[in-house]
Design a binder for these strands. Structure first.
Length: 586
RNA sequence: GCGCCCUUAGCUCAGUUGGAUAGAGCGUUGGGUUCCGAUCCCAAAGGUCAGAGGUUCGAAUCCUCUAGGGCGCGCCA
């Protein structure tokens, strides 16, 4: 419709140019949805933007343009309003056609080819596999997953990826923690390090390991603790040194093979848990990318070598620094430490470089907002290596605060540990969780009202929207029972009977769906789908309350049912993008 | 201290590349509807868009400064 109106305006402008009213030049013709009903359906500000060039008052120019507009069956009325806006009122015929469009396209309605098959990668969650996912990760999962769905629906070829941080000290701490719990299983008495992972999940992993391996990984406890520097709390205690020494001891006492067994036990158990959690949450990945693989196949070494070649590395204090400040970062960053180990940042350079080498036209990272300071250095690295940093977009996700009965829900009883995603899902259900997670703009804090998410009332937006879908199903069931099954052909033939105000409003909202999907996808703003759904559901409920559907007049009845079925289709399509179910009854 | 993000009605939040009298839900007040499944409609009240300058036909939106809040500033990951 928008492009149709642009065409009409373009033709009018051509006439005016021919008459010498307007100078010859190419113009951007802006056509927007009108904000208020009294402004019609679409509005153009073309007269305002061209007033200067035409040396006429905007309203006067608007009149000239309108006078030259070709007639169109899809436009019922054109008005000039305000400072010089041209308002278009869409004809009933044009409005009604949306119903048949939807019924014809079905599940495909709202999809577009905007992305033209370009390959886009969305990387999200990527939580370290050293513990279960918590409620904060859940928001990243919901937003990332919806974003991927949106981009797919707009014609991009999307790859969903999880970057597994399976290297580094944190994973060694997990391995050590598992080992100590395992030794407890063997009957040893251990003093658990302050820095160790104390969650119950570590005990579960240790128990399974003990059942599988017996005492094969047991070592003499005197040897383990010999000369280990004291933990925090003791005199001259240092929790970092303590835990590092224990890791080194585990390595030496167990040997490479047994340490690997231990390490893998922790990693694999955690990964399986995370995978399972996300799968149940309706979040699916195409690829789980291992950080260790980057070192193993030499990608990190190659990236560092390239930086060195480009003159972007220098040696200082025994370490290798990347001159990121040259590319807009606050300061330079270490990529190889003085002990010869590569930093996490070094892997990340290789990882992001690899993303572009894999042929993605665009790369989207969904990160917790606490990582925002990391963006400049990654972009700096891409630029130094000759990739276009603008092809990397980072969506920052703010924190989630749980509320129960109006008060901030306490973090779990175990000190410092957040409520897990699984606990949240079990309490409020997957649908409510996913819907609530994407309800706010991602860079806004999310106040998550647990009681509201569970309530079965129209104040609960999930319930309100899902019920709109169920309600339509219910009407159709009622129709069957009354001997009024929906006749699709009759409905299609009598759409012109849909002239009531509520019907027009509903059809108008339906016609906005495609634009809403595109906007949400391009701006990386899943919350726009939620707002769209709320409006669509409100229109449906209002229609339901205002007019009867199962009327005796078959033509009118089938037309109304056609509108209902179309509405149901769009509700379902939009809910599916969010990963929320569309129930037939509730 | 420096950097990034945020600040819109009593509350929770929208506001589509700068557009018309800044909107919605909840809450409050008054009225109507209560029929296909569990609710909708109308009206009223409520705003210095944190504050101050600037850019222009036009600013919640862009720029500068100030205030308040969040986060980040490791040879950690």
């Amino acid at each position: 419709m928008k492009s149709h109106l642009r065409d009409l305006l373009y033709q009018a402008l051509q006439h005016l140019q021919a008459q010498g009213v307007l100078p010859e030049a190419g113009y951007e013709i802006g056509v927007e949805r009108a904000q208020e009903a009294q402004h019609g359906d679409y509005a153009s500000n073309i007269a305002l933007t061209l007033a200067k060039a035409a040396r006429r008052k905007p309203r006067e120019l608007a009149q000239l343009i309108v006078a030259q507009l070709p007639a169109s069956a899809r436009v019922a009325k054109v008005e000039i309003a305000g400072p010089g806006f041209i308002n278009f009122f869409v004809s009933a015929v044009a409005l009604q056609s949306v119903v048949s469009d939807i019924l014809q396209a079905g599940d495909g309605y709202g999809r577009s080819v905007l992305g033209a098959g370009q390959r886009v990668q969305v990387e999200f969650v990527s939580a370290n596999p050293n513990g279960p996912l918590h409620v904060g990760h859940g928001r990243g999962a919901a937003i990332g997953s919806t974003l991927a769905n949106l981009l797919q629906a707009t014609g991009y070829e999307v790859q969903r990826e999880y970057y597994v941080n399976d290297a580094g000290r944190q994973m060694d701490i997990l391995a050590l923690s598992v080992w100590l719990r395992y030794l407890e299983q063997c009957g040893e008495r251990v003093t658990f390090p302050v820095n160790g992972y104390k969650g119950d999940y570590v005990r579960h992993i240790a128990r399974a390991l003990h059942e599988r391996c017996g005492a094969a990984l047991r070592r003499d406890s005197g040897e383990i603790w010999r000369d280990v520097p004291p933990d925090e709390g003791a005199e001259n205690g240092d929790k970092e040194a303590h835990v590092d020494a224990l890791i080194a001891r585990a390595r030496s006492l167990l040997g490479a093979a047994d340490y690997r067994t231990l390490f893998e036990a922790g990693l694999n158990a955690m990964l399986a848990d995370i995978r399972d959690d996300l799968e149940q949450f309706g979040v699916h990945y195409d690829h789980w990318f291992s950080e260790r693989s980057l070192t193993a196949d030499g990608a990190v070494g190659r990236a560092i070598a390239r930086l060195k070649q480009g003159g972007d590395l220098y040696s200082q204090d025994g370490a290798w620094w990347f001159r990121s400040s040259r590319y807009g970062d606050e300061k330079d960053r270490v990529v190889v430490r003085d002990n010869g180990e590569q930093t996490y940042f070094a892997s990340d350079i290789a990882y992001h470089l690899g993303k572009f080498e894999r042929g993605f036209a665009r790369v989207v990272n969904v990160w917790g907002s606490d990582h925002h300071g990391y963006i400049p250095r990654v972009k700096a690295a891409l630029q130094a290596l000759g990739s276009d940093p603008d092809r990397l977009d980072v969506v920052l996700v703010q924190f989630v605060i749980l509320f129960r009965n109006g008060v901030r829900a306490q973090m779990s009883t175990r000190a410092g540990e957040f409520v897990t995603l699984r606990e949240l899902r079990n309490e409020v259900g997957n649908d409510a969780a996913r819907f609530f997670y994407v309800m706010r703009k991602s860079d806004q804090h999310l106040d998550f009202d647990l009681e509201l998410a569970k309530s079965k009332s129209n104040e609960n937006p999930v319930y309100y929207v899902q019920y709109a879908h169920a309600r339509i199903c219910s009407v159709l069931r009622q129709g069957e029972q009354k001997g009024y099954p929906w006749d699709a052909a009759s409905g299609a033939a009598h759409l012109h009977l849909l002239t009531e105000g509520h019907e027009q409003k509903l059809m108008s909202t339906l016609s906005l769906y495609g634009a809403a999907v595109e906007r949400a996808a391009l701006a990386y703003e899943p919350h726009q789908i939620v707002y769209y759904l709320k409006e669509l559901a409100a229109d449906l409920h209002a229609y339901y309350n205002a007019l009867p559907f199962l009327v005796e007049d078959a033509a009118l009845r089938n037309a109304r049912l056609a509108l209902l079925v179309a509405t149901r289709q769009v509700l379902k399509n939009a809910l599916t993008l969010l990963g929320v179910s569309a129930p037939e009854s509730m």
